[in-house]
């Protein structure tokens, strides 16, 4: 029975059997890992707090024939500020589900783990939540190899002028001449592409200080939503709760 350590964030936690929880961890060492926290639903169980979504901790696991089991957990941070705020919880759940949907098990990706921690810390502190969300979406996509082409036409590599469309299927901006190559491509402004480029190439905590107009925000949302739908082929389950929270609280997200 091999024991191993993981520094990880719980990205999903589901009930299993009578008192267990099946956790999906995103770890620094191994990327996405699934493991069972035995008895984690019992009030006195020591794994209980470490089995909650958003928890960042050091986990000791032992490998089994089937799923690995969590033996011990030392919590580094619980991100309570996210869990105790309705809007942040809705955004956080969407972010964790997006990460889960975009990644494969046991395939660690470059700086995705530190990026996830930076995201959760920024979300805890608050700020422009809509821009945080957009930055996370493009940040995940870029780190997983789906960085959109924004500097030149994704089809002909030509220079982009004023009339630009965005094609999620081709993964970038189309010039006027190539706009007919994708009937689903939609019009975006050069300013929106520049804002997206800024979000992609600026450190995460700085990127969210960008000032953008309401029209650009809508276009940024359309771009990231179309890219995610194109990669996943479906909408995330938590997107509907996010929309409901937006409606209930009157927040723009």
């Amino acid at each position: 029975m091999a024991l191993y350590n993981l520094e990880a964030v719980v990205i999903r936690s589901r009930n299993l059997g009578e008192a267990d929880r099946l956790l999906t961890l995103y770890s620094y060492q191994r990327g996405k890992v699934r493991a069972v926290a035995r008895g984690a639903r019992r009030p006195r169980n020591r794994l209980r707090a470490g089995a909650e979504p958003f928890t960042h901790g050091d986990y000791l696991l032992f490998s089994n024939k089937g799923l690995d089991n969590i033996s011990q957990c030392e919590i580094i941070g619980s991100f309570r500020a996210i869990r105790e705020d309705l809007i942040k919880t809705a955004i956080g759940a969407y972010i964790l589900e997006l990460l889960d949907a975009l990644t494969e098990e046991e395939e660690p990706v470059g700086d995705l783990f530190p990026f996830l921690l930076a995201v959760l810390e920024t979300l805890s502190r608050g700020g422009d939540l809509e821009l945080i969300l957009r930055s996370v979406e493009v940040g995940f996509l870029a780190r997983l190899g789906y960085k959109p082409e924004l500097g030149q036409c994704v089809n002909c590599r030509g220079v982009l002028k004023d009339a630009v469309r965005f094609s999620a299927a081709q993964g970038g901006a189309l010039c006027f001449g190539c706009s007919r190559t994708d009937s689903d491509a939609f019009a975006v402004s050069a300013g929106s592409l520049a804002a997206l480029d800024y979000l992609l190439n600026t450190p995460f905590d700085q990127a969210t200080k960008l000032r953008v107009s309401a029209t650009m925000r809508t276009q940024l949302k359309d771009i990231t939503a179309s890219l995610i739908r194109s990669r996943l082929g479906q909408d995330l389950k938590s997107a509907s709760f996010l929309a409901l929270v937006k409606e209930t609280t009157g927040t723009s997200l």
Partner: peptide, 15 residues
């Protein structure tokens, strides 16, 4: 007192 219970309580409190 888990994530689902917390989000439910926070949502209900808002209403």
């Amino acid at each position: 007192l888990n994530a689902e219970g917390e989000v439910t309580a926070t949502y209900l409190a808002r209403l």
